[in-house]
Design a protein around this nucleic acid. Structure first.
Lengths: 221, 221
DNA sequence: ACCTGAACACCGTTCAAGT
DNA sequence: ACCTGAACACCGTTCAAGT
């Protein structure tokens, strides 16, 4: 309650950790995870950081820039999870890249649409392309071919993650239930179809099958 | 200038076509196409319809419902472009479905992110699944297999369309230039990579190759 | 250098009133 | 039945002022 107690919330240096672009972006992602993309506002994000909304403009240019930064943060998580490993089989590296991208999207379902809607190509994404292309090049894979494969894998990872987030109902409890996806007027017959189309499959398995297809299409080493 | 001239804007029945959900949704899509998703507001959309913002609430529940309606409109365009044709080869139908979905997304780049971010499964989408599944069933394709294929095709169409909208630079003039996608700090070396990764390929061709892969993976008729 | 108060135009939404 | 005026809380953003 008192101001001396308030510092226990942060448990770090001084009475208040100073603002920084990095800290703001992480807080923004956390806020989106917790409350949804639409709920994020500069005022509320400021409050969540113990600061007054307008202070954020000292570290980000505007809200659009803030969201770009969140996308960059997500890509850096992908980079951390699936760095290129020059010694291992490049196909395993490509597979790990696609899986990591999908997993980051699934771990942040409220933020995932940003990845594909922010009109930005963040540095960590380019570093991933560069590193994995280089790994494949050591086995004689041409740059154009590696790029084509990486583009397809990226589309597949994001496309299937977003489809899963919006339309699939995880196996057991189906949160939210399929019926929440349907407009009130939907005919009973189509509602039944939705139940099986959206609920009756394993998204992981479907994603892996797609991966296999794409990687097998390239001729051996 | 005068009020008698004003009616020439619509050139239809009476001095002012009455509002309807359908007319509102079409105007909303047109507005998004013209001015971008972020620019759409109830006030401005009302003005574009010659009406006062709040009037829209007589026909749509709220802005979220409005956007859901726009997504439904887009799916109905897909349905119109690629109805199932029970007599033709079902593979051609599936291919036409995926191509139509992609083309609708590319034709409405500003609205496309909505398809994958609105948490809704519109009736026309379900009708497409139903019709194409039925077409495949007449050739002995099991429902589960048809559904799996349709899910993969849907992910691929949307994933590649969204990737193309955001990160690719159509062959000749590259609007906007790749450099607009990069954050100011991007190292020169990665900027060069972006130029070839985002600009040096044919998105149509890449999409069609993916389609071939998916359709060939299913055993013959 | 960085945070704040005050202020701005704008936004989504409600509701009582008009027609 | 459907449109509007007035009003509300909220939003993104600016800027002069504080420290």
């Amino acid at each position: 309650m008192t101001s001396t107690q308030a510092t226990t919330d942060r448990a770090t240096t001084g009475p208040r950790t100073p603002l920084s672009r990095r800290r703001i972006l992480e807080a923004a992602l956390g806020y989106i995870d917790a409350h949804g993309l639409d709920a994020l506002s500069m005022h509320k994000l400021g409050a969540a950081l113990g600061v007054k909304g307008m202070s954020l403009y000292n570290h980000v240019a505007n809200k659009h820039d803030l969201l770009d930064g969140v996308v960059e943060l997500l890509w850096s998580q992908v980079e951390q999870a699936a760095p290129a490993t020059p010694d291992a089989d490049w196909r395993d590296g490509f597979r790990a890249y696609a899986s990591a991208l999908r997993e980051v999207a699934l771990r942040h379902p409220n933020a995932a649409p940003l990845i594909v809607g922010q009109l930005i190509m963040p540095t960590p994404a380019l570093r991933l392309v560069q590193a994995h292309t280089a790994a494949a090049a050591t086995r004689g894979v041409a740059q154009a071919q590696a790029h084509a494969l990486l583009r397809t894998l990226t589309s597949h990872a994001l496309g299937s993650a977003l489809a899963e987030i919006n339309w699939s109902c995880g196996r057991p409890g189906c949160r939210p239930p399929v019926s929440d996806l349907l407009r009130p007027g939907t005919p009973q017959e189509l509602a039944g179809l939705a139940e099986v189309f959206c609920g009756g499959y394993d998204p992981d398995e479907q994603f892996q099958l797609g991966l296999d297809l794409m990687l097998r299409a390239t001729d051996p080493p």
